[in-house]
């Protein structure tokens, strides 16, 4: 009998793992979250998963792999080092892996940019939250003009950055910078992450700076085309995360000698989360969990030979954030 549903395990019951559980439940009908796996018996995420009917264990991946029925797909939300160790074990057991750590074992995936990937890939990488929020913008610019250099700054509230994120801060910047190049299309990429503890927490905020040709730094047709491309990409991302929006209009500046003779565009992105787990300031969770749910749904549909079930923002009947009226959170 052919399966119509795939079972999933989430490894890492922290902020990202817990938010992902909700995303899978809401947005995919062909993925059934069955296991939640951690290492800390007092984890809030394990208790929550249990209450929602998942089998939860604090005995790690050894426990998961000793189950009689293994999951079809595993979502890893631990740390880069843990995924590097676990990835070969999942592969050996024939389990698909969607990696939400910056381990970058498999190819980088950013759904609005490179969803047509090799669906037979046994392991795919979701870059980082900052990467999911910024790579689409770099791509929007680089698809109109050459981008010799792009730099992204991701600011997230301290409360939404769990121990995995904190232990992986180097991997975060390196993986994000690499994805800005490989998927974003910049010749050279740089990534910066800032944790801000202010209360009430700040909403996830990302700045994208792209070096652009001198002509594009001045008002004109080329600049208009870049703007159009940015706005179109915002709408595409909103189909995953309705709270993704421009905080203000992109700012173009003519070339300056102190910018190594480059003109630039500055794109301020704010991501309001869906509040599935942490409150709406934690858009950094949504931007990566929504992308992982989308990719997981696609992989599972391909493997089972069935139709995808993932629902976009408009299919869910949600309203995307209005780009012309940016949130004024905290002001």
């Amino acid at each position: 009998m052919s399966k119509t549903k795939a079972t999933a395990a989430i490894v890492g019951p922290g902020n990202i793992g817990t938010d992902l559980m909700f995303k899978l439940m809401r947005r995919s009908t062909i993925i059934e979250p069955r296991f939640m796996v951690g290492v800390d018996p007092t984890s809030d995420g394990l208790a929550r998963a249990k209450r929602l009917g998942l089998e939860a264990s604090a005995e790690g991946v050894d426990w998961l792999l000793s189950q009689e029925e293994l999951p079809d797909i595993v979502f890893e939300a631990t740390s880069a080092r843990a995924h590097q160790a676990n990835a070969p074990r999942y592969a050996e057991a024939g389990i698909l892996a969607v990696d939400l750590t910056p381990a970058a074992v498999g190819p980088y995936l950013c759904p609005p940019v490179n969803l047509s990937f090799n669906l037979d890939a046994p392991n795919v990488n979701m870059i980082t939250c900052g990467g999911q929020a910024t790579v689409p913008m770099v791509h929007a610019v680089s698809s109109v003009v050459p981008v010799p250099y792009a730099e992204i700054v991701a600011s997230v509230s301290s409360r939404s950055a769990g121990p995995g994120t904190r232990a992986n801060i180097d991997e975060f910047t390196e993986t994000t910078a690499a994805a800005v190049e490989v998927i974003g299309g910049a010749e050279q990429g740089k990534a910066i992450i800032i944790l801000n503890p202010v209360e009430p927490p700040l909403m996830m905020r990302n700045s994208v700076f792209c070096a652009i040709p001198e002509e594009a730094g001045e008002p004109g047709a080329l600049q208009d085309r870049i703007l159009e491309s940015i706005h179109a990409m915002v709408r595409t991302v909103q189909e995953y995360v309705s709270g993704y929006h421009l905080r203000s209009d992109p700012q173009f500046d003519p070339a300056r000698s102190t910018w190594r003779g480059q003109a630039r565009v500055f794109i301020p992105i704010e991501v309001k989360g869906g509040g599935d787990y942490l409150p709406d300031y934690a858009g950094n969770l949504d931007i990566i969990t929504a992308a992982a749910a989308r990719v997981g749904d696609l992989l599972v549909a391909h493997r089972l030979g069935i139709a995808t079930s993932w629902k976009s923002t408009s299919e869910l009947g949600e309203q995307p954030a209005d780009a012309s009226a940016p949130e004024r959170a905290g002001v």
């Binding site: 944790l195 801000n196 500055f266 002001v331």
Partner: peptide, 18 residues
């Protein structure tokens, strides 16, 4: 007032625009 921390120089553009 907004409590930005070291490294958030990009927020200066936001604030100036506001």
């Amino acid at each position: 007032e907004l409590g930005y921390v070291g490294g958030q120089e990009d927020m200066i553009i936001d604030v100036a625009l506001q």
